[in-house]
Amino acid sequence: MEILETNKITEISDDLSNLLRDAGYLELSACIQCGTCSGSCPSGRRTALRTRSLMKKVQLGLKEEVLSDKELWFCSTCYTCLERCPRGVPVTDVIIYLRNLAVQEGYMQAPHIALCKMFYNTGHGVPINEEKWNKLREFHKLSSVPPTTHNYPKAEKEIQTLLKSTEFDKLTGVGDYEEKKDEKGG
């Protein structure tokens, strides 16, 4: 029967909330679900993102649901919720941390993976990838190539060394780990 459905909660786990407590976000446990965060959220009033619900799901340990949900990425990190939360829950930072966990589980948006590739290959999320950008710099009386990693190959190598060192390349599937990655939740 199509009308039969349930999202009953039968188990509450501490795993996810403990991860957040260990990361220093203790205030999350004191969230009273007042709704100031959702009420302030510019994304929430045009998407399905309900910041408050997200916090509740973390408290109840609904890990798979939280990390696989696309809504986690609808937040523009404007920090209004964090500033207004009466309990001092660092809401935006919690969302950023959850994103870290989601990425570890393999949940990433395709355009973001592309960004990581550019970061690894050039040291910039938005690199000079067409001649017109050099010409535009010249037009505005600046050096054709900026004094960033674009002009210092050694610096670019340093970035890659670091990204390998923190295993960013493995995490996001770039550099030596680049392959046709089947992104979950993309």
Partner: peptide
């Protein structure tokens, strides 16, 4: 209505606009 008012704006004719989330319905209210 259960939901802490997040912000208050001024509208036309000095009317007041409140924004909150109805936490029981999980819907934003303006």
């Amino acid at each position: 209505i259960r939901g802490r008012v997040a912000e208050i704006l001024e509208g036309e004719n000095d009317n007041v606009i409140i924004r909150a989330e109805d936490t029981t319905l999980q819907r934003p209210i303006e």
